[in-house]
Amino acid sequence: MKLRIFTEPQQGADYETLLTVAKAAEDLEFDAFFRSDHYLAMGGSDGLPGPTDAWITLAGLARETRRIRLGTLVTAATFRLPGPLAIQVAQVDRMSGGRVEFGLGTGWFAEEHAAYGIPFPSDKFARFEEQLAIVTGLWATKPGDTFSFDGKHYQLTDSPALPKPVQDPVPVLIGGHGATRTPRLAAQYANEFNMPFASLEDSARQFERVRAAAESYGRRADDLVYSNALVACVGSNDAEVARRAAAIGREVDELRTNGLAGTPDEVVDKIGRYREIGAGRVYLQILDLDDLAHLELIADKVKSQL
């Protein structure tokens, strides 16, 4: 079981804060540092000092870290054209020496599109599917060959399909709760399927759908990594758990039900239950990015038991 750190910078974090957390995660030997791809704060946060762009951030971190893997959970397909996105991700992969993982989703938060003048189409899933085909197709095109695509939403003609990433292929992550189309696309394109903020029961049900879809697509179900994203709130004792829950505006009982909250032993036990249903990675959503002692506790008392 691998533990990864997952941040939500739109809630209020500048690049220096993200760099500090990424370096701490690397020093503490977490498997990866991931960030969301949003431009507007949620849940009443003022979001100060303002949003940071996911791929610009990861480009900087690529040059300022050494080992830790880097990625998005997940890039919004509505934010970028697929050709330039393939170039961006390939370039950051090269800048990192081959440490990038590419999470892609449809995009969903209408308010942030309105706030920054980004079109919010009604047919987001169809565009998302074409983006997956284009980005992976560009990377898979052999040097010297060209790539063309004639879709409903995007057309590419004789693209040189450059630059190439270091990794062949760049790991692709798809996630979500959709019962039919999401498992199908995961089976077709993904190296990893992620179930965000879901119960054991819902995760097990969705993992089985993805496994069945993979097999129907001619892949072994275990070709994919299965993972969960869950908010983390760990304390050495109940008082510390309560303090950390209050700092992120959440209730302890709710976090114990819907996230990974409690003492290290409690959290290890719950992670074990996710492992039993097939999860091989857990993305720990860390909402208080100034509390580096939280990461140290998780590394020392949770990760060490896994």
Rank of each mutant, 00 (worst) to 15 (best):
T106H: 04
R127V: 04
G83I: 06
F125K: 08
G97H: 09
S122T: 04
F120M: 04
Q131P: 00
R69H: 07
A110E: 15
A114D: 10
H113N: 13
M95C: 01
V92Y: 10
A114V: 02
I68V: 15
T72W: 03
L104W: 09
G98T: 09
Q88G: 10
D93H: 12
G83V: 14
L85S: 01
L104H: 08
T78P: 03
D93L: 10
R69K: 13
W108K: 11
T78G: 06
G117T: 14
E101Q: 12
R80E: 06
S122R: 12
G107Q: 13
A114Y: 01
P84D: 10
A133S: 15
E111F: 03
F109K: 07
T78M: 11
L81P: 03
A110I: 10
A114T: 05
Q88R: 12
E129W: 06
S96D: 04
V92C: 07
I68N: 07
A77G: 12
M95R: 00
K124L: 10
A77N: 15
D93G: 10
A115M: 13
F102Q: 08
V92A: 09
F102S: 07
P82Q: 03
R69C: 01
L132N: 06
D123T: 14
E111M: 12
R69D: 02
P119K: 14
T75M: 02
F120W: 06
F128L: 11
R94G: 01
P84Y: 14
S122V: 05
G71H: 06
W108P: 08
L132G: 07
P84S: 11
I118A: 02
T106C: 09
I68F: 07
K124G: 06
